[in-house]
Design a protein around this nucleic acid. Structure first.
Lengths: 225, 225
DNA sequence: TGGTCATGTGACCAGTAGGTCATATTGTAT
DNA sequence: ATACAATATGACCTACTGGTCACATGACCA
């Protein structure tokens, strides 16, 4: 955690620092990120940096905390559009709302997920942090299996891994493509992007193999209404 | 590509160097890999290194070439167990054979995929190399759509991304868990591991949602015969 | 034996990293 | 105005990086 001095800083200065850190991590990842560059880009002296933070990891952990806080804030006044949704509908809502969040904080999300999904995998430091995220998914899936929505022969941990993989794949896709657009929020909300997300989630739910009820049929009511 | 001098080396020395490089890349990735450590671990002088290779990237590209060569060699005398397999059966065979290959060259695969799937994503250098891999998948999927095996409303590029994601997820799982075992080849071939792979591929094919024909039913004949 | 060419070597270079610290500046309370 | 604590600073340290090069060693042929 950052030292108290950091939190005594005027907000403007604090933001300049964390923005520089976000850019640095988004560009170089955790290990290749340079404190020298961060201080240069935030216009503070090196000595000051060490009055605010312990080290590089400390800054990153703070970014994690910021992300979590902002996400909580964002989800606080969002509510699923209907009650009695099944697990897949709920997951779909979660993902879509999450992607809206991503388009609101693209650099921050990019920085954090770049580190967490790449180098973070090989550092034990983040194992427990990741674990916290999976906990929610795990209980959700357990319930879905009990409800008969998810195939019980696919065990819980495997299902968790699958849903995380999907979630990350969609998030990566949105960030990667979204950053190329001039207005990422508009792009994410566009019918085309939403349909792509729907397709991905449809495949997660029903698989790649063609069945009697395919994607076009399932989502027909949306495009015709 | 390495310089001619490298290929004139006695095989033992050459192997010692590439093994040190494999270990280095597997442990530290591409950017954090240290030439100093590589030369120290292979027992050669720094100057010699630069007589063999241009730089770090050069070594890695050589590892890529080695991997490709070994994989070709490995697949050369493996053949699908039956003709007239459908696309998903063929993909399953490909994955399983690939996982056997992984268990034969775990460190090499680990090193290469660590780099390609992480930092490699952000370096354009590897875009064309990755493209070569996807080409095969793309034609396979196009054919599968024509055959009516894959839902045509899921477009080709999306399907490619999905299958690559799955392929990587399974490979990562096998390497990560496999490296914990004392005999990785035996572990990969074990009934339990094979069943896990089957489950993953089943979910890719039919989705997470429970349907009238679930995994247990589909694979019943195997466990009872 | 002497000559020539390929190979091997490690001291050395400039650049950058993370981190420290004595000193300078600022803010605040008396 | 003075005193004291909090904050800001950048020169400086060591360690390590990728890369070079003058020289040493070895192999092979005349």
């Amino acid at each position: 955690m950052p030292k108290p001095t950091f939190f005594n800083l005027p907000e403007e200065k604090r933001e300049k620092i964390i923005n520089a850190a976000i850019d640095e991590f988004a560009e170089y990842g955790l290990e290749k990120a340079s404190i020298n560059r961060i201080v240069a880009n935030s216009g503070i002296a090196k000595g000051s940096f060490y009055q605010y933070f312990e080290d590089k990891h400390d800054v990153f952990l703070h970014l994690l905390a910021v992300l979590e806080r902002e996400k909580m804030e964002y989800f606080k006044d969002k509510h699923p559009p209907a009650r009695n949704m099944d697990t897949f509908q709920y997951f779909r809502w979660m993902i879509k709302t999450g992607m809206e969040f991503n388009s609101a904080y693209p650099r921050l999300v990019q920085a954090v997920s770049r580190v967490m999904l790449n180098e973070g995998m090989y550092y034990l430091d983040f194992a427990n942090i990741r674990e916290r995220t999976t906990q929610g998914l795990r209980t959700m899936i357990r319930q879905a299996i009990q409800n008969g929505e998810v195939d019980p022969s696919v065990d819980v941990d495997l299902a968790v891994m699958i849903m995380e993989t999907w979630s990350n794949a969609i998030s990566n896709y949105i960030l990667q493509e979204g950053m190329k657009q001039k207005d990422i929020m508009k792009w994410v909300r566009s019918a085309k992007t939403q349909e792509t997300i729907d397709k991905m989630l449809y495949v997660m739910e029903y698989g790649l193999r063609k069945t009697e009820s395919d994607f076009a049929k399932t989502f027909q009511e949306r495009t015709t209404s």
